[in-house]
Design a protein around this nucleic acid. Structure first.
Length: 419
DNA sequence: TCTGGGGTCCTAGGACCC
DNA sequence: TCTGGGGTCCTAGGACCC
């Protein structure tokens, strides 16, 4: 049996952990630069706040209903996520951290030694008490069915006690008939449209389609999903794998035309991507750099150049990465365009322990050591060491509603008064 | 005025090889 | 008039996820 544990309205719930006064008021959390709504409390959902809407489009609603607005605080969310995952891993050694707010757990010998009802109740209680985050839990014999069970638990918290178990054929069929096709894990907008056009409106109907048809129209991905939903474990439980691509991309607060300014951003993106790369003990051989104009300003010329450049040897050094990223920027930059977004993506990733030595060119071995020291200093002191071309003009994201880093910064920790 | 960021996997088609 | 066949590898783009 698998369990899928999902934190309810995760970012919104995180903001409430240290600010209980917002527990019963509508809350939303915004994306970078305070752009779009990326998390909503139940109260906000009821008010009709849609996922992904630009906040400026709902100013009226926010004002009318006193919706509490937060800028995103990823340091806080990341830390609370770690705490949740640590608690969950005490329930089973087999845990797949699927995203910042979701994890699959595997239970091998469930019915003999454990009662899933006990486990479900206990997991919810433990995480709520230990971190302050409410969760929903779904149990089922396959991962996609655990997703379905989870949705039921989330939809009917009172009736289910925040967990739901699919452990019989009757419950499986009933659950699938209840699940709208567009809500199925792996069925997105396009697939859902296509399925509805042939009158497949729920998950059960999808599992009744012929294999050959599903394979042809929805590729092997769709076929695997069909089997998994039918009760045959097909979507595999996965161990932690190093990432195959590492991206650092940002929209700018304002549009940028100047090449030097772009070059500073690219340097910073290179450095951030380098840190992520080294933290998973990897090296990269390809650097992809892109620029984008403002896609919402159709009155302005649109230009979205991109290029991938090869580094002659695998490296994890910020110096090397940035050298080639700058080269890439030089290749694609055109003056006279107002750019709104840029990014650096590292690809061609290999692991430290499977290093191919290049015959002609290689990295200065001192760089590895230097980067190690640098990462340590920055971890300890918080981004004190910067590279020359990252520039001194410290640009800032718009974050007008940012909460403190309650759980990761000593200066932000809540003080409790005695007496 | 204002519009996110970071991933995965699969497929089709082109380049290239013998 | 007429122009092989069978592979591999790589990449861009599209679908999906949170």
């Amino acid at each position: 049996m698998y369990a899928l544990v999902d934190c309810n309205n995760f970012f919104a719930s995180c903001e409430r952990v240290f600010q209980p006064q917002y527990r019963n008021v509508p809350v939303v959390v915004l994306s970078n630069n305070d752009g779009c709504v990326i998390a909503r409390s139940n109260e906000s959902k009821v008010l009709g706040v849609k996922m992904g809407v630009p906040i400026f489009q709902i100013h009226q609603l926010v004002k009318e209903h006193n919706i509490k607005v937060f800028s995103s605080n990823y340091t806080l969310y990341g830390d609370l996520s770690n705490r949740v995952m640590n608690l969950l891993s005490t329930f089973s050694p087999d845990i797949e951290i699927y995203s910042i707010d979701e994890a699959f757990l595997k239970f091998h010998t469930f019915s003999k030694y454990f009662d899933l009802n006990d486990i479900g109740k206990s997991m919810h209680r433990t995480v709520l008490k230990g971190v302050g985050i409410p969760t929903s839990i779904g149990f089922a014999p396959t991962k996609s069915l655990a997703k379905v069970a989870n949705k039921i638990a989330k939809k009917f918290p009172e009736r289910t006690g925040n967990y739901y178990i699919i452990d019989t054929e009757e419950k499986r069929i009933k659950a699938l008939k209840w699940t709208e096709i567009g809500d199925v894990w792996g069925i997105g907008r396009q697939f859902s449209k296509k399925l509805k056009s042939i009158n497949v409106n729920n998950a059960y109907q999808f599992t009744m389609l012929p294999d050959a048809y599903v394979r042809k129209e929805f590729s092997v991905v769709g076929l695997r999903l069909k089997h998994d939903l039918s009760g045959m474990p097909t979507i595999e439980f996965e161990d932690v794998k190093p990432k195959k691509g590492i991206a650092t991309t940002r929209s700018f607060e304002n549009m940028i035309t100047d090449k030097r300014e772009l070059s500073e951003r690219v340097s910073t993106f290179s450095a951030l991507a380098g840190v992520k790369l080294r933290s998973q003990q990897s090296n990269c051989e390809l650097v992809h750099v892109f620029l984008q104009s403002n896609r919402f300003r159709l009155d302005l010329p649109q230009f979205n150049p991109k290029v991938t450049v090869k580094i002659p040897f695998p490296t994890s050094s910020t110096f090397e990465i940035n050298k080639y990223a700058q080269k890439a920027l030089n290749e694609i930059y055109q003056s006279g365009i107002q750019y709104k977004k840029a990014g650096v993506i590292l690809m061609g990733i290999s692991q430290d322990d499977t290093q191919q030595l290049s015959m002609f060119e290689y990295e200065n071995p001192k760089e590895k050591v230097l980067m190690k020291v640098l990462d340590k200093i920055n971890l300890k002191l918080g981004e004190k060491v910067r590279f020359g071309n990252m520039g001194v003009s410290k640009w800032k994201m718009r974050q007008e509603h940012l909460t403190p880093q309650f759980s990761t910064n000593l200066n932000h920790i809540i003080k409790v008064k005695a007496g």
